[in-house]
Design a binder for these strands. Structure first.
Lengths: 138, 138
DNA sequence: GTGAATTTGGTACTTTAGTATGAACTGCAT
DNA sequence: ATGCAGTTCATACTAAAGTACCAAATTCAC
């Protein structure tokens, strides 16, 4: 937001400067009105490209950013989230239990809770929904 | 490439029109030079944003393009690939059978073949590998 | 048209996933 | 200290996934 205000302030200043320049140059006869318009056109075209690149970059990075707030909103705990990530990597309950140093029973409990919280019937559906909600990496 | 040529041609035409308009308006005194410059600035700013959005979109789609050659390389048939896509959407074997109008047995056969061809032990692992190989959408 | 690959589907079986329930332990806040 | 949320784990069960093997119809290239 701060950047946007700054950019538009700069644009207004640039316009004012151009007005003055155009008056001077027209009166002095050094430059034709075509030249002034061309410069303005090229300048603002470049500004348009630059600003759009800025904003689209922000969108680009935010696309694959995980939404930690949504995890809390869904009531998913730390441990449950860890299990979810391992599920998305294609691990079985037993393998998840081994990597997290807990029993398969514990993993099953976490998975069952996850399925309820993500409103999924299967772990594959949980993966799909978690990706849609941007709570795990695509 | 064709689009680029078209866009720039349109830009040149727009500039020429603006030159003529600015001459007319300046001579007739209807519009001040400030107005003309402002219009040009806004117009080319918008054009800059538009063109940049076009080009950046093209880059975005090319990133997550599926590799159909790799599907053939792995020996995955048309039907098997359809099943793979449905698996990644989180459907069960029964649900996949219903949507493809085949029995659950048939789906199981396809899944078993897919797991071998993708070197996966579970369908969740198959999803993960298929995404790494870029043969299904992320 | 002959053969190979694909698609289909069945039976029987093992394994994994998921549900339900209960219980114990921990950390943390009121 | 009491309570609550989270973590842990067990048992017993149902459901789904996956394997193995077989067999028939279809498609497609040669």
């Amino acid at each position: 937001m701060k950047k946007t205000i700054f950019v538009f302030s700069a644009l207004i200043v640039a316009l004012l400067v151009l007005f003055k320049l155009s008056e001077y140059s027209y009166i002095s006869g050094d430059l034709g009105i075509e030249t002034v318009i061309s410069v303005v056109a090229i300048l603002f075209f470049a500004i348009g490209v630059y600003i759009n690149k800025r904003t689209s970059k922000r969108q680009g990075t935010s696309v694959d950013e995980i939404d930690k707030e949504k995890v809390q909103y869904l009531g998913i705990s730390k441990r449950e989230y860890e299990v979810l990530v391992h599920i998305s990597k294609g691990l079985s309950n037993r393998e998840i239990g081994d990597t997290l140093h807990v029993s398969e029973s514990t993993v099953k409990t976490h998975v069952s809770n996850l399925l309820v919280k993500l409103d999924a019937k299967r772990r594959t559906q949980a993966i799909q929904k978690a990706k849609e909600l941007k709570i795990i990496a695509a």
